[in-house]
Amino acid sequence: MTTYWRPLPQVGPARPDNAPTLAGGWAWFTHVEVLERGQAPQVEPVEALPGDWRARLTAPRPALMGPGWDRPRLMGILNVTPDSFSDGGVHAEAEVAIAAGRAMADDVDLIDIGGESTRPGAREVPVEEEMARVLPVIRGLAGGPRPLSIDTRKAGVARAALGAGAAMVNDVSALSFDAGMAALVAEAGVPLCLMHAQGGPETMQDDPRYDDVLLDIFDWLAARVSAAEAAGIDRERILVDPGIGFGKTLAHNLALLGRVSLFHGLGCPVLVGASRKRFIGTISGAGGGRPRAPGSVAVALACAAQGVQVLRVHDTSETAQALALWRAATQGSWDEDRP
């Protein structure tokens, strides 16, 4: 039976001498939760960690595209689709999207640009149409203060986006949609985010089921990381995303968020994109889109407390302000050069 070891992260000044740093970041831990399929979780002191798990959980993650991992990093969402679930296509016009990207640059560390909606029930967008949406925006923001990520499942779109100035690929299919994506990313030598999804957008919310959602997704992402490495993509360039809302019920989402620190055991930076998702509205009663901003910020802070390195968000200024105060209150640190 496979045993999984989840760190129980803490932040703040009361750090014992024996507490290792989680992934070289801002959190530390003295205990781990031992997880096995069909068994009740057990808590053990950090000394019980096997050597391979300890190495993966504590090794500093290499910096990607500039900033390191001394604090949570924000990925600003810039959807340039007419049918986005979160903003109703407000950025569908290129000039509007470029202006929005420039405005969010003060609050985020990178900007994720997508031209195909992956909301439940969304249709697949042809390559030419997706490129027509994203390329003008990428060209308009390239060379700005923040690196750009292309959110796409398609190698043709990714190739054109990288040529236009994008510096990272965010593939919600984890290289499983387009057989050419792995070779493209390997050749380009850019960072890659592998996200879990059960099924495609058309059917993923029909009736998602798991034996153990947390451990199933951990194993699935581990296999996709191995597949990416086999294709020539260095693990040091890979991020992992458990895919909140992609083929998950509300209970599945909460199970993942409650123990998201397990994914540090993959040895890669962890990215979470829960912003404005349906479960936030279900729990809070907030309507779709911007009314879910406070709930989205709350989830982002909960992820930061578990050492999640990248938070993919719509409400960039609100999340940046909340993180700044969270860091000041819990760690006594802040960016003193901010206006």
Score class of each variant (00 low, 15 high):
residue 4 Y to A: 08
residue 7 P to H: 01
residue 15 R to D: 10
residue 17 D to A: 15
residue 20 P to L: 01
residue 22 L to Y: 00
residue 26 W to A: 01
residue 29 F to Y: 00
residue 29 F to C: 00
residue 34 V to R: 15
residue 36 E to T: 14
residue 42 Q to K: 15
residue 43 V to P: 05
residue 44 E to P: 07
residue 48 A to C: 04
residue 48 A to F: 02
residue 49 L to R: 03
residue 49 L to E: 02
residue 50 P to F: 02
residue 55 A to L: 13
residue 55 A to V: 11
residue 58 T to L: 00
residue 60 P to K: 06
residue 64 L to N: 04
residue 66 G to P: 06
residue 70 D to L: 13
residue 71 R to F: 04
residue 73 R to V: 07
residue 76 G to L: 02
residue 79 N to Y: 02
residue 82 P to W: 00
residue 84 S to R: 00
residue 89 G to E: 03
residue 92 A to V: 12
residue 95 E to Q: 14
residue 102 R to V: 09
residue 102 R to H: 14
residue 103 A to W: 12
residue 104 M to N: 06
residue 110 L to H: 05
residue 111 I to Q: 04
residue 112 D to N: 13
residue 114 G to N: 08
residue 115 G to A: 08
residue 117 S to K: 04
residue 122 A to V: 06
residue 122 A to F: 03
residue 122 A to E: 04
residue 128 E to V: 08
residue 130 E to A: 05
residue 133 R to K: 12
residue 138 I to M: 13
residue 141 L to Y: 09
residue 147 P to K: 09
residue 149 S to E: 06
residue 149 S to P: 05
residue 151 D to S: 01
residue 156 G to A: 10
residue 156 G to W: 07
residue 162 L to S: 00
residue 163 G to C: 02
residue 172 V to W: 10
residue 173 S to E: 09
residue 175 L to T: 01
residue 176 S to M: 13
residue 183 A to N: 14
residue 185 V to R: 00
residue 185 V to F: 00
residue 186 A to H: 07
residue 187 E to A: 15
residue 188 A to I: 03
residue 189 G to W: 01
residue 193 C to H: 12
residue 195 M to T: 08
residue 199 G to V: 04
residue 199 G to A: 03
residue 203 T to H: 13
residue 204 M to P: 06
residue 205 Q to T: 04
residue 208 P to E: 01
residue 209 R to W: 13
residue 212 D to S: 12
residue 215 L to S: 08
residue 218 F to H: 11
residue 225 V to R: 06
residue 227 A to Q: 10
residue 230 A to H: 12
residue 230 A to M: 10
residue 234 D to A: 15
residue 237 R to E: 07
residue 241 D to G: 12
residue 247 G to R: 05
residue 249 T to D: 07
residue 251 A to F: 12
residue 253 N to F: 05
residue 255 A to M: 06
residue 256 L to A: 03
residue 257 L to A: 06
residue 258 G to C: 11
residue 260 V to E: 02
residue 262 L to V: 00
residue 269 P to I: 02
residue 271 L to I: 08
residue 272 V to E: 11
residue 272 V to K: 11
residue 273 G to K: 09
residue 274 A to K: 05
residue 274 A to W: 06
residue 275 S to D: 07
residue 279 F to I: 04
residue 282 T to R: 15
residue 282 T to S: 14
residue 286 A to I: 09
residue 286 A to G: 09
residue 290 R to D: 12
residue 294 P to T: 07
residue 305 A to V: 06
residue 305 A to Q: 13
residue 317 S to N: 11
residue 318 E to G: 12
residue 322 A to K: 04
residue 323 L to M: 08
residue 326 W to C: 11
residue 328 A to W: 14
residue 330 T to I: 10
residue 331 Q to M: 15
residue 333 S to F: 11
residue 339 P to Q: 09
